[in-house]
Design a protein around this nucleic acid. Structure first.
Lengths: 127, 127
DNA sequence: GTTGTTCTCAACCATTCAGTTGAACAAGGA
DNA sequence: TCCTTGTTCAACTGAATGGTTGAGAACAAC
């Protein structure tokens, strides 16, 4: 089931430590110990993080004696990008279409940026 | 803090119900009740999901009498895409570079697909 | 064999999270 | 005014999550 994998991928990347591990693996393969070094937490904790990433298919591990070098798998990123792009584009198109409609209704030529008339509720998202 | 927002966005999309809500909002704005309709869970549960999405900045809500129409915010998707693309490209480049090196080492011309020699460990990721 | 290294597994603890029910609030309609 | 509708808040429950420590497996080196 692809849906489940997508959930695992997003969940895996929801953790800053795991995103950091991914970032470092992008620069080159590394063993569990090497990856664990920069962090304050135990090796076991990092090992768990790596397992989460591997279960999501974001990384793979090979065998080298006692070592378990981790390798970033680029393909899964495309799965994510595809999902995101689909809805981003749809939303973007709707946005532009609505702007055009609003502009036409007012006999205006320049589409406005403020597409929703009622007042906005700001309840979170300190961006 | 941008890092925290990225965590919230990924965490928000790690839930299939919330991804579904996003998908439906991509087709057009909808109230909480409308969004809750298709699901078996209570309206309160969906209201919570919507709050998570709003806190992540993925959607915004406006006021219409008692109603709270939800609107998909396309900009945040770009934040994600940017993060993903950075590491996907790095990994891809490394992958291609390694293939080239391996090919050269063997005096080969055609780059192989099997870039890691040791046996792969398959511990998860039923893709 | 014994020792040291690298990593994972198991059990546990604290926190977070997705769901529930019940109450409250805000706005429109009788 | 009272009632209904739409939504959120509060308190609770059970499951999942991120961390810990301790033990053990697998391998290299002595």
């Amino acid at each position: 089931m692809d849906d489940d994998q997508l959930s695992r991928v997003f969940a895996a990347l929801a953790d800053p430590t795991r995103r950091d591990i991914v970032a470092r693996l992008a620069a080159g393969d590394a063993t569990v110990g090497e990856l664990a070094n920069p962090y304050d937490v135990s090796i076991q904790a990092v090992s768990k993080h790596i397992k989460v990433l591997a279960d999501a298919g974001l990384i793979s591990q090979t065998k080298d004696a006692q070592r378990r070098p981790c390798h970033l798998e680029a393909e899964v990123f495309e799965l994510m990008t595809k999902w995101i792009e689909r809805y981003r584009q749809q939303a973007q198109e709707r946005y532009e279409r609505l702007d055009a409609v609003l502009a036409e209704l007012r006999g205006d030529e320049r589409p406005t940026t403020n597409h929703t008339q009622p007042e906005q509720i700001q309840q979170g998202a300190a961006s």
